[in-house]
Simulated scan of single mutants.
Amino acid sequence: MVAAPALGQREPLAPPAASDAPIAYLYDVTSGQVLFAREANRRFMPASITKVMTTFLAFEWMEEGRIVPQQTYTPRLETWRRWKNVGSTMFLPHDAQVSFDDLLHGVTTVSANDGAAALAEGAAGSVEEWVAAMNAKASEIGMADSHFGTPNGWMDEGRTFTTASDLSTLATAMLRRHPSKYRHYVGRPEFTYNEITQPNHDPISGVVRGADGIKTGFTNQAGYGFLGAAERNGRRLVMVVAGSPRARDRNRAARELIEWGFAAFDQRRLFPPNARVAKAEVQGGSRTQVPLVAPYGIYADIPAGGNGDVRLSVSYEGPVQAPISQGEEIAELVVSVEGMPDYRVPLVAGQDVGEAGLVRRALNGVLGWFS
């Protein structure tokens, strides 16, 4: 039997109960560690969390110059009719001349189904082309068990599905590739369009210290879900809860999971960003070794109160064949923290290594006899 806390004491922090969040996942973007996982690879319908994929693709296309935020667009009449007042909306008029900036704010802040469809059509020429690009981008970043059938997550007979693990991959890519766009578009408390102001229903932003997004989701089929993020003292956590029976259950689970994540672990920096961590042997190159760099640094989350025993080992298939480009991923650092699952951090080449010339190849051959 567990004793009740003394009067005035708070209950100790704990991950959310399965009854509140059948699917729950907590990932430390800074270290690369999974801190909590329940049904992490179970497929589920993300509902409006789908719009995070639309947001990420929009960020990517902005970076490429394929979307200009100030550019205006008028939805086709049939598109406007299809999404007029369907679920969450930004109330686009039938003759709207709306900027992509407003459309994307409508998507990220008030979960606008009409805004997501209009953005998709305006950017790609058709919703179908946009959805194809969503799936291609998901595959590119490693979302191995996800598929999208719409730009907004509206019910589509199960064609749209994802996993908690894949959603953390998506959030990590968004945060690392597009930090300034993330700050501009995600986590706003409200959005006003066409003189209509609507609130953001994010359950942690403004409530949990350091929280700044990302996206809720709900349909009768999917239940209540949330993909969220928060940062404290340079430490960035991403969390997923899904399948909650009620909004209040989801909201409670989200807050409990993120607060527990910050409280239950102490983070240690092992190497700063861009530090040279090790070397890899090179075959057929102008150099016999290449330095291995950790672009985002190496960090370890240690269970609070633990002894902090950490072991490191480098894993790669070697020797690595030249030529090698600086920044090319060629190895992984395996980090072992006592009492936790091992995790891997990518290591990239710290410099270019060209192919060896005739003299260098001969010298390498001679050196090989003595190695």
Rank of each mutant, 00 (worst) to 15 (best):
A37M: 01
R38S: 09
E39A: 15
N41W: 08
N41Y: 11
N41F: 14
N41R: 11
R42M: 04
R43L: 02
R43P: 00
R43T: 03
M45R: 05
M45Q: 10
P46K: 02
P46I: 00
P46E: 01
S48W: 00
I49W: 00
I49H: 04
I49P: 00
T50W: 09
V52Q: 05
V52L: 09
M53A: 10
M53N: 09
F56V: 07
F56I: 02
E60W: 05
E60H: 13
W61F: 03
W61L: 11
W61A: 02
M62T: 07
E63F: 04
E63V: 01
E64C: 09
G65R: 01
R66T: 10
I67F: 11
I67A: 04
V68Q: 15
V68H: 12
V68D: 14
P69E: 14
Q71S: 15
Q71H: 13
Q71I: 07
P75Q: 07
L77I: 13
L77K: 15
E78D: 13
E78T: 14
T79D: 14
W80M: 12
W80R: 05
W80K: 13
R81K: 14
R82F: 13
R82D: 13
K84F: 15
K84Y: 15
N85Y: 12
N85M: 09
V86A: 12
V86L: 12
G87S: 07
G87N: 10
G87A: 11
G87I: 08
T89L: 05
T89Y: 06
F91Y: 14
F91R: 10
L92G: 03
L92F: 05
P93Q: 11
H94P: 12
D95V: 03
D95K: 03
D95N: 12
A96D: 06
A96R: 01
Q97A: 08
Q97T: 15
V98H: 06
V98P: 08
S99V: 06
S99R: 06
F100H: 15
F100L: 14
F100C: 11
F100S: 10
D101F: 13
D102K: 12
D102L: 05
L103E: 10
L103C: 04
L104S: 10
L104C: 07
H105S: 06
G106A: 11
G106S: 07
G106Q: 01
G106M: 03
G106L: 10
V107T: 02
T108I: 05
T108L: 09
T109W: 02
T109R: 02
V110F: 01
A112T: 03
A112R: 00
N113W: 02
N113G: 11
D114P: 06
G115W: 04
A116Y: 08
A116N: 08
A117R: 04
A117L: 15
A117S: 07
A117Q: 10
L119A: 04
A120C: 07
G122P: 01
G122D: 08
A123S: 13
A123G: 07
A124S: 09
G125K: 06
S126D: 03
S126R: 07
V127F: 07
E128K: 15
E128D: 15
E128V: 05
E128Q: 13
E128H: 04
